[in-house]
Design a protein around this nucleic acid. Structure first.
Lengths: 140, 140
DNA sequence: ATGTACCCTGTAGTAGACTACAGTGTCACA
DNA sequence: TGTGACACTGTAGTCTACTACAGGGTACAT
C-alpha cells in the first residue's frame, strides 16, 4: 500500500524488530505502555517506523542492560523537549542521572577488581585451594 | 535460647535484614532458591547468620543493581571453591565476567557522555529550544 | 488472482523476583 | 510468668516485563 502519510525511508515493525534485536511483541508492548510514542500508521493500520525509533530502541535496550527499569528509562527519555520544563529543570535531572551512573561505574570497577584479584590468587596458587570471589570482594 | 551450635557473634534474620537493607522474606526466598546457603539453625529452628552472610547479601544487592539476574549472580558466587573445578576453569570464567563488566562500564560511560552533552547544550542555549537526550546519545 | 509472508487486535499465559498473610511457636526481660 | 517482639512454615498473591496464541486482515511478487 502506497500511503502518502508513510515516508519513503520508513519501515515496518518486522524490520524494526530485526534491526533492534527486540521482538515484534515487545515493540508493541513498549508502545502500549507508552515507552515508545504511538507509531504512524498507514490506511490499514500497519505501524511504520524510522531511524529515530531505532535509536530509541537501542537506547532502551542499553539502559535495560544496566538495571534501569522501564519506568526509569521512561524518565530518562523524558529528559527531552517539554515546553512545561525549563532547561534548568532538565539540567538538574540530567546531573542527578550522571551521578547515578558514576556510582554504577564505581561499583562495577569494584566488582572487576574483585574478579581480578580472584584470578590473581588462582594464578598464584595454581591448582588447588580456595578462590572465593567474596573474599576478594571484601578485600577490594 | 543458648544454643551451643550458635556462635556468639551471630545474629537473627531480622538483624540481617536491617543490616542488609533486604526484607526478611527476601532473605528466606534467597535461601529457598539456593542463592544463600541453608542457614545454621538453633534447636527451635531459628536461622542464625554472621558477617560472611552479610557480605554475601551486599554483593548480591550490588550485582542486582547492575542488571545481573539472580541466576547470573549465583554463577558469580560459584566462582569459588569447588573440588570439581580446576583453577584454570575458575580463571576462564572470571576472565569472561571481567569482559562483561568492561563492556558494561563502556556503555555506562557512553550514557554519561550523552547526558553531559545534553546538559552542555542546555547550558549553551539556556532557556528554550530542544534538549533531546537521544540526539546527544546518537552524537556520542 | 493467489499464495505466503507479513501485519492487526485482543486476551491470556509465563518467568523472575519478590511480598503478604495465616496460623503457630519462641525469646528475653520486667 | 506473662507479654510483646520476633521467628517459623506454607501457600497464595503481586508486579514487571515480556511471550504466545487465536482469529483475522494486508502487501506484493509471480
Amino acid at each position: 500500500m502506497n500511503d502518502p502519510t508513510v515516508r519513503t525511508n520508513s519501515f515496518t515493525i518486522g524490520k524494526l524488530a530485526r534491526a533492534s534485536g527486540l521482538s515484534i511483541e515487545t515493540i508493541r508492548y513498549y508502545e502500549r505502555i507508552e515507552l515508545l510514542p504511538y507509531a504512524r500508521r498507514n490506511a490499514s493500520g500497519y505501524r511504520y517506523y524510522d531511524e529515530d525509533d531505532l535509536h530509541r530502541l537501542h537506547f532502551i535496550s542499553l539502559a535495560k542492560r544496566h538495571g534501569f527499569s522501564l519506568n526509569e528509562i521512561r524518565e530518562l527519555l523524558e529528559l527531552r523537549v517539554d515546553p512545561q520544563r525549563t532547561c534548568e529543570d532538565v539540567r538538574r535531572h540530567a546531573r542527578q542521572k550522571v551521578e547515578e551512573i558514576n556510582v554504577k561505574i564505581g561499583e562495577l570497577e569494584r566488582m572487576r577488581r574483585a574478579l581480578q584479584q580472584l584470578m590473581d590468587s588462582c594464578a598464584a596458587k595454581d591448582g588447588g585451594g580456595e578462590c572465593p570471589i567474596l573474599e576478594a570482594f571484601e578485600r577490594g
